[in-house]
Each structure stands twice: as C-alpha cells, then as structure tokens.
C-alpha cells in the first residue's frame, strides 16, 4: 500500500465564541486507508468534518488536500475537488426522488461540468445498483427508512466519484443487521472505488473492526492516534472515553479473528 498523504490537517483551531471546539489538531490521512475518528460527544469530530469540507473557517491552521490548501475554499469547490461526505443527521433532498438525489451527486461532484445529464443518470443508476437502492429509484427520498436514507446519502456521495469520503456516524441509529450491511458496503466501496475514508463513529466495535488507524479527540484535542489495538490499550483513551479497559479490549478481541 502506498503511503502518500491525501489529506493533512495542520494545527487547526476552531472556536465558537469562548468555546474552543478544536485546539491545534494535527491529522494526516494516507491514500487508501480508513481512518476512524472517535471521541465523546462534543469532542469536535463533526466540527472537524465541517472544517475539512469548508462549512467552517478555522481561526488557525490549514487543511491540505492533494497538496492544495483548501482552508479558505467554499464547500462546493472542495466537493468538486473530490471530497464527499454524509451527514450525522441525514440531509437527502426530500422532495426529489432517490434517483434525482443520486444524480445531483454525479452532476456536481468531481466530474462536474464534464458530465452530461444522460451520463449522470447512468452513473446514478449504477451507484444505486451498487448500494442496493435501485428498487427505490423513483421513490421520493422522504419515503425512505432511516437506514435507506443513510444509504442514499452514501450513494449520493459515491456518485460524485470522490477521492476522500467523510462518513459522519453512518451507523448511528441502525440495528445490528443494518450495521453489518452498511459496514460491508463501506468496505466494498473502498476496495472497488479506491477510496480513502474518514469515519466518525460511535458504534465502537464497528469502527475498531473496519478502521486501520484511529484518532481520538477529546474536548477538541487529539489525545491519541494509532491502530485499534494500540488505542484500546491507551490509558488516557480508556479514561476519557472507553470507560473500562476490559470492555475496550473486549471490543478488539471480539473482532480480531475476522481480520
């Protein structure tokens, strides 16, 4: 596996009034990896996603994507450069059909301005086939279940042909069977489409299983970084987040045989 850097977050500081949401955070993401981003509620995970995707402008620091400084770029330009994301609270365009939602991903993603309506439609249908939503192509997005809406957001993001995919709590609110389905889909997408993925996740066993490396945020600071096994053994992480060490190790052990 190549170790080329795809994204580097350098000394990012983001404040909301007096609250420091991110404090001097440094993260490097390598091409082709899945990086897990974990931390208690309010740790700054979604804020970091918003800084990377251009929704928030940080007070300090820089974000480089493919060696280009994207810190001050507006969200739509960043998306077109190849960063797509899904949302913790799903945001499909409810009054459009599943197919239209996915077409929008293709029309304005990395291929924007080079893709025709017909090509976007084809791309969207392929993507819906891939994620398993093809039977709902003509349904309004508002009629989908939560799991389907999350899958639709994934389809919309994938149709944009991104290099980097930001998944914000893709598994939250899903039942165990749905979690397994989504995890398989994410793995498959990563392999087939040569994606790099950052996933914010609370479903601990899932992220410990799927991610190659984990970064832990706590009160806006990076407190640990390493393989899932290393993270589960870091005292500060256990103290801040995972609770008991035994429980933490259990997560890792439970999943190790599958690796």
């Amino acid at each position: 596996m190549s170790k080329a850097t795809l994204l580097s977050v350098k000394s990012i500081t983001k404040k909301f009034g007096g609250l420091v949401a991110l404090n001097n955070v440094n993260i490097t993401v390598y091409e082709g990896e899945i990086l897990g981003l974990i931390g208690p509620n309010g740790a700054g995970k979604t804020t970091l996603f918003n800084v990377i995707s251009g929704v928030y402008k940080p007070e300090g620091g820089r974000v480089f994507f493919d060696s280009v400084d994207i810190t001050r770029k507006p969200p739509h330009q960043i998306t077109r450069m190849g960063i797509a994301r899904t949302h913790q609270i799903v945001k499909p365009f409810n009054e459009m059909t599943v197919l239209e939602n996915t077409m929008i991903g293709a029309l304005f993603g990395r291929l924007a301005s080079r893709i025709t309506m017909g090509e976007a439609r084809k791309k969207a249908l392929e993507t819906l086939e891939f994620v398993g939503l093809i039977d709902n192509a003509d349904a309004p997005a508002s009629k989908l279940t939560l799991h389907e809406k999350k899958t639709l957001e994934l389809a919309r993001a994938l149709a944009a042909e991104p290099k980097l995919l930001l998944l914000d709590e893709e598994l939250a609110g899903l039942n165990p069977k749905e979690i397994e389905e989504s995890l398989n889909l994410i793995k498959q997408a990563k392999d087939e489409k040569e994606l790099t993925i950052i996933m914010v996740e609370h479903v601990m066993h899932a992220v410990m299983n799927i991610a190659e490396r984990i970064v832990v945020l706590h009160h806006g600071e990076k407190i640990a970084e390493g393989t899932p096994m290393e993270i589960a053994n870091t005292p500060r992480v256990i103290e801040a987040y995972l609770g008991e060490k035994e429980l933490a190790l259990k997560f890792v052990k439970k999943l190790k045989p599958q690796k």
Binding site: G54, V55, P74, P75, H76, R80, M96, I104
Partner: peptide, 15 residues
C-alpha cells in the same frame, strides 16, 4: 431545487 430544499446540503454536494 436542491438549494431551495437545503442550501448547506446543496453546497456540500458541489453546488
């Protein structure tokens, strides 16, 4: 129509 429904989500899909 995307901007009408959610301007922020629209900007995050590249609009």
């Amino acid at each position: 129509r995307a901007v009408m429904q959610d301007a922020q989500a629209a900007s995050l899909v590249g609009i």
